[in-house]
Amino acid sequence: MSNQNDIVNKGDRNKIYFLIVVIAALLGTNAYLYIKDEKQNERYISISTEKDRLKLEVEKIEVELDKANSLNLVLTGKLQEEQQSARDKIAELKAALQKGTLTQENLVAAQKEVRQLREFVNSYNEQILRLTQENLQLKSQRDSLKQFATAESIKADQLAKKNEELNIKVKTSASLKANNVEITAYRVKSNGKNIAVTRAGSAKKLSVKFNIVPNQLAEKNYHKIYLRIFDPAGNLIADENNMFEADGQEMQYTSSTSISYNDDNTTYTMDWVNPNEFIKGDYSIILYTDGFTMGKASITLR
């Protein structure tokens, strides 16, 4: 009996040991699987977090490029090409980061590309800053040149105005002035003889005599003399085609002639035959030459 009991107890103990080993193996397997799942979860969370970080970094880089473009700088061809290449790379990265899963290898490659983009943007911003400073300097120089040009233009205008005033003074000083201006009305006989008259009914022409005031500045040469005659009503007697310029304006004249001036106290005469009848009243005349008024006179016809 004793031996039989020993055999039974020994068999139970073997079963117990077996169960213990099985339970330990199961516990070990569960522990291994749990740890493995935890590591996988941690790895997934790490990849997801890095993915979000990279997305944020890419968006920041894109914002910096947009900010640089908002400065409206004229970029060189090289900078334009580099910026376009960067934007293409940003679009590729954003598309890759939108995917549901990323391998560790994909993540490492994305991290490298983002670092390269960051380096490019830093260099790009430095070049933009330099261009901005150069533009400010150019603008400052341009404004200075513009102010200088404006000041010089004002000076030139003032000088031109002074020169013009001086020229007018010189021309005025050199212009001829009439002296002892006299008007005589004449009746013309059939034989051509002129008879001085004072009545309007018998007058046919007016004769204007004058001397020239001595002027050493006046040019000793031929001068064109213009005569304007006004009737008693104040109307100018002139052909509308007879135009000249004097005292800064264009006007009509009644008659004209040329005289040779030699500063020798010569007496000059201008005759005007009235194509119409004279009327009673005062007739006035004005003489012009070299663009200026030369002299005036009047006559009364009864």
Rank of each mutant, 00 (worst) to 15 (best):
residue 1 M to H: 13
residue 2 S to W: 15
residue 2 S to H: 14
residue 7 I to V: 12
residue 12 D to F: 14
residue 15 K to G: 02
residue 17 Y to K: 11
residue 23 I to Y: 06
residue 24 A to P: 10
residue 25 A to Q: 07
residue 31 A to W: 08
residue 32 Y to Q: 04
residue 34 Y to V: 09
residue 35 I to Q: 11
residue 37 D to H: 14
residue 38 E to W: 11
residue 38 E to I: 12
residue 40 Q to P: 01
residue 42 E to T: 07
residue 43 R to W: 10
residue 47 I to D: 05
residue 49 T to P: 01
residue 50 E to K: 07
residue 53 R to N: 12
residue 54 L to Q: 03
residue 55 K to P: 04
residue 60 K to F: 08
residue 70 S to I: 01
residue 72 N to Q: 10
residue 72 N to S: 07
residue 74 V to F: 08
residue 75 L to R: 04
residue 78 K to V: 08
residue 85 S to E: 12
residue 87 R to K: 14
residue 93 L to E: 02
residue 96 A to P: 02
residue 97 L to W: 01
residue 100 G to N: 13
residue 104 Q to S: 02
residue 106 N to D: 15
residue 109 A to S: 09
residue 115 R to L: 11
residue 116 Q to A: 14
residue 122 N to E: 09
residue 123 S to E: 11
residue 131 L to K: 08
residue 132 T to W: 05
residue 132 T to G: 06
residue 143 D to G: 02
residue 147 Q to D: 13
residue 148 F to V: 09
residue 149 A to W: 15
residue 151 A to G: 14
residue 156 A to F: 13
residue 157 D to V: 09
residue 158 Q to M: 12
residue 159 L to D: 13
residue 166 L to R: 08
residue 168 I to C: 00
residue 170 V to R: 12
residue 172 T to Y: 12
residue 175 S to N: 05
residue 178 A to L: 03
residue 181 V to S: 03
residue 189 K to H: 04
residue 192 G to H: 02
residue 195 I to D: 13
residue 195 I to M: 08
residue 196 A to S: 11
residue 203 A to Q: 10
residue 206 L to N: 02
residue 207 S to H: 03
residue 210 F to D: 03
residue 217 L to W: 12
residue 221 N to M: 04
residue 223 H to R: 01
residue 226 Y to T: 01
residue 231 D to R: 04
residue 236 L to D: 01
residue 237 I to M: 12
residue 240 E to H: 09
residue 240 E to V: 11
residue 241 N to C: 01
residue 242 N to I: 00
residue 249 Q to G: 05
residue 249 Q to M: 09
residue 253 Y to N: 00
residue 260 S to P: 03
residue 263 D to T: 08
residue 271 D to W: 04
residue 274 N to G: 04
residue 277 E to W: 11
residue 282 D to N: 15
residue 288 Y to N: 05
residue 296 K to I: 14
